[in-house]
Design a protein around this nucleic acid. Structure first.
Lengths: 223, 223
DNA sequence: TGGTCTTTATTTTTTCTTTATAAAAAATTT
DNA sequence: AAATTTTTTATAAAGAAAAAATAAAGACCA
């Protein structure tokens, strides 16, 4: 899952960034409102974490512009107490949730998870297909009950494929949701990660990730 | 579906072109307004993506001339924010939609789909005939519920035939809508692809693609 | 330093086009 | 109308091009 963090308070960023990355999110961050807006327009994020007070362009204006552009991605606002009277306003403006500073990290992480939790195809937080299970919270993958160790990129990639099982995901889709903005679109790192996943997850009879030439990859129950 | 992209910004073209092609559109591109106008007049496109500011001939002038010529194909305009006051003007002039830069790729792709979907009355994105179904979004073809794997050219060809079922489509029609401008008009690659489609889709009793000698091919319910 | 991620170079696979020939349909001649 | 010629379409198979898989080396970084 790819996040955009728009926050100018260095303290918050320096604690939040490592935590989010450790929690296996792909994160782009900026401290400037204008730049945040630009990033939001030109990339595909699954969630934006947006500070209210920002240099350049403030949170309220960013939401307004994004919604006007027709972008419907979830937005989580960070506000300080004194601004709290605005909360209804923020929600009507198009924010999906807000959290007021100071906040506990765990609280924020919970809210993020709640927002990102899609009703689709994942009950009890566990993604399943055939005898494969992936638990995003516990960073755990098992196949046939046997635990398989994955690196964090491998895990993120598998999670993304599983969340959209049955759909063909193009390299670009994958790039945009599993890698951050610095990724080279012409790199073959996706192929390499697919290869590593296959090596770890598949057997001769039990294929899992299917290549659809010229379109992308997909995970599906039936061949 | 065949698209024409008229845009002089190299950055936009270099990200857009691969994306569109990956999304299985056949795309011609030019950075010059005059040339864009020429291409639009001399080819059969299903949609034009047109930049506002162009060398040679600008977007507004191109629309005006095309509409004056009586061409009714959909046009999607790309504008920058400052030009946005012109939007009503653009729409009355004959653009079908506009999107302002910077934009998310996914956003543009969605709009393209919406526009191309407009006139036709096929339900749920799925094209059907007899026991054959084709889902353009999922890149999925089934016959009698059984999945059939097609290459992307085969898929595009079948999609084109299905979208115009009942009509006889000439080789030229097919060339113009399924292949790009570099295709050799005297090649027999169409015959070969038809052959491959037939091999994958037809049985002895269940014919699907009919040859009308000297005129072209058609797909139809009744023989 | 070991593990992870990315890059580079190479091989393999798949898809697309061309070429050559056969078959079928249409046109022409007798 | 039958026989012959010409044109159009079908097929198989080789060749070219593009896409994907792989191996291995390099970069990064906790």
């Amino acid at each position: 899952m790819r996040l955009l963090l728009v926050e100018d308070d260095e303290d918050i960023v320096s604690t939040l960034l490592p935590t989010l990355k450790a929690d296996n999110y792909t994160v782009d961050a900026t401290g400037n409102g204008e730049h945040g807006y630009f990033l939001a327009c030109t990339n595909s994020y699954d969630l934006i974490i947006l500070d209210y007070n920002l240099p350049g362009l403030n949170g309220r204006e960013i939401i307004k512009k994004l919604r006007y552009e027709g972008l419907s991605l979830p937005i989580l606002m960070l506000t300080v107490h004194s601004e709290l009277n605005d909360k209804i306003d923020l929600l009507t403006l198009g924010a999906d949730d807000y959290i007021s500073k100071p906040f506990a990290l765990s609280e924020l992480l919970t809210r993020i998870k709640v927002i990102l939790r899609r009703p689709k195809s994942w009950q009890g937080h566990t993604l399943k297909i055939n005898d494969l299970e992936l638990d995003p919270d516990k960073f755990l993958v098992t196949r046939g009950g046997r635990r398989i160790a994955l690196s964090s990129k491998e895990f993120a990639l598998l999670e993304y494929l599983l969340k959209h099982q049955g759909l063909i995901l193009s390299r670009q889709d994958i790039m945009e949701h599993v890698w951050d903005e610095n990724a080279d679109p012409f790199s073959n790192t996706i192929e390499v990660h697919i290869r590593n996943l296959r090596r770890k997850l598949e057997t001769e009879e039990q294929k899992l990730i299917f290549t659809v030439s010229n379109r992308g990859y997909k995970i599906d129950e039936k061949k």
